[in-house]
Amino acid sequence: MTFQKNAIPTFDPLKLKIKLLSTGGDRFQSFFTPASDVFHINRIEDYVRFIKVPTETDVHPFRLTLFNFIFQTKGHSLRTKGLNTYEFGENTFFFVPAYEITTHLSGSQDAEGYYCHFNIDLLTSDYRIKDLLADFPFLNFNCFPLITITDEVKDLIMPLLQRLEMEYKAGEKCRFDILRTYLITLFTELKPFVQSVSSLSNNSAYQITEKYKKALAQYIYEKQNISGYAEMLGVTPNHLNKCVKSVTGKSAHDLLNEMLLLETKVLLTQTSLSVSEIAYRMGGNELSNFVRFFKSKTGMKPGEYRKMVNPEL
C-alpha cells in the first residue's frame, strides 16, 4: 500500500487552517496564503513562541489529507505515526504521508526548524506517482519516518527550505513550478540518508512485527482477528504472537486493540458519525461492548472523549 484516500473524513487544508486559527487566533493569520490548499511552510519557532506545544488537540490522534514533514534544527519532539512512537532532535526530518494517523505527544519550547505540508498533485505533474514513491520511499504509507542528516548537508538544505518559504510568502505571485522544483531537490538531497526497515534490524521477529503493524494500519476496518493477519503474513497465529511479544512486550491482540482505539479516536474527533455508527464500523460491535472497550482504555465514554477533544461535534 502507498497511501489511500479512504472514506473516513480527515483534516483537509481548510479544516487544518481553522484548527490553527482557533488555537492561535489572528496571530496565525499571516501563516496562510492563497497557496495553502496545495502547499504550506512555516518556521516551528514562529509557532511555539505564540503557544505552548503540544496543544490539547495535538496530543490526540489525527489524520491529514496532505503529506507533511517537519525538519527539527533545535530542540526535541516526541511523535507517533501509526502504532510507533519516535523521539528525535536536531538535524532530523519526520515525514508523515497523507491519511496516516499521527500524534504530537510532546515538544520542547526551544524547538526550531520548519513545518511543511503539500498536496501530492503538486509533484505528480512531472512525476508518475509510482516513480515518485519509488524514488523517495519516505513518502510511502507506513514508511520509516525519520531522516537524520549531517551538518554539512544541513548547510545545503537550509537554503532550499528558505527558498520555499520565500516563494510561499509571495502570496498571489507564488509559483508552483518553483515549489515543485525545490521540493524535488530537497527530497533528492535526503535520499542518501534514508534507512529501510531491513537496515534497522535483520531480526526476523522485528520484521514480522513491523509488517503486522503496517497490515493493521491498512486493513483494520476489514479484519479484527489475529488469524486473518497471520494468514496474510504467512505465519501461524501463535508465531505472530511470539514475534510481537518478543519485540514489543505486548501481544498481537494488544496491538490490534491499540489500532482499533486509534481509529476510534479519529472517528470520534474528525467525523460526525454517531457512537453507534462508529461501533459498527469498528467491527460491528454491540454498542454496550464498544463503550465498555473504549472506557477500559481511556477512562471515559466515547461521547465524553468527543466532547473533550472536539466540542463542536
Results as ranks from 00 to 15, higher is better:
residue 107 G to M: 13
residue 12 D to R: 11
residue 218 Q to C: 07
residue 142 N to K: 10
residue 179 L to F: 09
residue 101 I to D: 02
residue 63 R to W: 03
residue 93 F to Q: 04
residue 173 K to F: 02
residue 109 Q to Y: 00
residue 290 F to D: 00
residue 70 I to T: 14
residue 306 R to N: 13
residue 77 S to E: 01
residue 257 N to A: 09
residue 132 L to D: 06
residue 230 A to E: 05
residue 276 S to Y: 04
residue 96 V to D: 01
residue 257 N to Q: 14
residue 18 I to V: 10
residue 45 E to W: 00
residue 218 Q to F: 00
residue 57 T to F: 09
residue 171 G to E: 10
residue 60 H to F: 09
residue 112 E to L: 07
residue 54 P to V: 06
residue 14 L to F: 15
residue 93 F to T: 10
residue 239 H to K: 14
residue 100 E to L: 07
residue 78 L to R: 15
residue 283 G to Q: 08
residue 172 E to M: 12
residue 38 V to F: 03
residue 90 E to F: 00
residue 165 E to I: 03
residue 200 L to W: 08
residue 188 T to C: 07
residue 32 F to I: 10
residue 255 L to I: 07
residue 37 D to K: 13
residue 187 F to S: 00
residue 255 L to M: 08
residue 180 R to Y: 05
residue 24 G to W: 05
residue 86 Y to G: 08
residue 105 L to K: 14
residue 74 K to I: 02
residue 176 F to C: 06
residue 86 Y to S: 08
residue 147 I to S: 00
residue 267 L to E: 13
residue 203 N to T: 11
residue 178 I to D: 04
residue 301 K to Q: 15
residue 28 F to W: 12
residue 299 G to M: 03
residue 153 V to I: 15
residue 18 I to K: 15
residue 5 K to Q: 13
residue 265 K to D: 04
residue 178 I to C: 00
residue 103 T to I: 12
residue 239 H to I: 09
residue 307 K to N: 11
residue 38 V to C: 05
residue 160 L to K: 07
residue 161 L to D: 01
residue 29 Q to C: 00
residue 257 N to I: 00
residue 310 N to S: 12
residue 112 E to S: 13
residue 292 R to A: 14
residue 257 N to S: 14
residue 60 H to Y: 11
residue 293 F to A: 12
residue 278 I to R: 02
residue 176 F to V: 09
residue 294 F to C: 07
residue 233 L to D: 11
residue 186 L to R: 10
residue 199 S to A: 12
residue 182 Y to P: 03
residue 16 L to K: 04
residue 15 K to F: 00
residue 238 N to F: 11
residue 41 I to C: 09
residue 85 T to E: 11
residue 271 T to V: 05
residue 25 G to P: 03
residue 84 N to P: 00
residue 233 L to A: 10
residue 3 F to K: 06
residue 163 R to W: 02
residue 146 L to G: 05
residue 253 H to V: 10
residue 189 E to Q: 14
residue 167 E to H: 06
residue 236 T to P: 02
residue 32 F to L: 13
residue 269 T to D: 09
residue 80 T to I: 05
residue 229 Y to M: 08
residue 6 N to I: 07
residue 27 R to H: 12
residue 138 F to C: 05
residue 216 L to D: 09
residue 75 G to M: 10
residue 45 E to P: 05
residue 123 L to Y: 11
residue 162 Q to G: 02
residue 310 N to A: 14
residue 39 F to P: 04
residue 164 L to T: 06
residue 75 G to L: 14
residue 91 N to F: 07
residue 292 R to I: 04
residue 34 P to E: 09
residue 44 I to D: 01
residue 261 L to Q: 11
residue 162 Q to R: 06
residue 308 M to N: 12
residue 52 K to S: 15
residue 189 E to G: 01
residue 147 I to L: 08
residue 22 S to H: 11
residue 115 Y to P: 01
residue 116 C to D: 01
residue 29 Q to K: 15
residue 13 P to D: 02
residue 74 K to M: 10
residue 300 M to H: 03
residue 143 C to S: 15
residue 14 L to Y: 14
residue 313 L to V: 13
residue 297 K to T: 03
residue 99 Y to K: 13
residue 12 D to M: 06
residue 185 T to F: 12
residue 150 T to M: 10
residue 166 M to N: 11
residue 177 D to V: 11
residue 237 P to D: 01
residue 243 C to H: 07
residue 34 P to N: 04
residue 178 I to R: 00
residue 292 R to W: 04
residue 265 K to H: 02
residue 297 K to D: 02
residue 133 L to H: 04
residue 140 N to G: 09
residue 136 F to N: 07
residue 44 I to H: 02
residue 131 D to I: 07
residue 122 L to K: 08
residue 96 V to P: 01
residue 248 T to V: 12
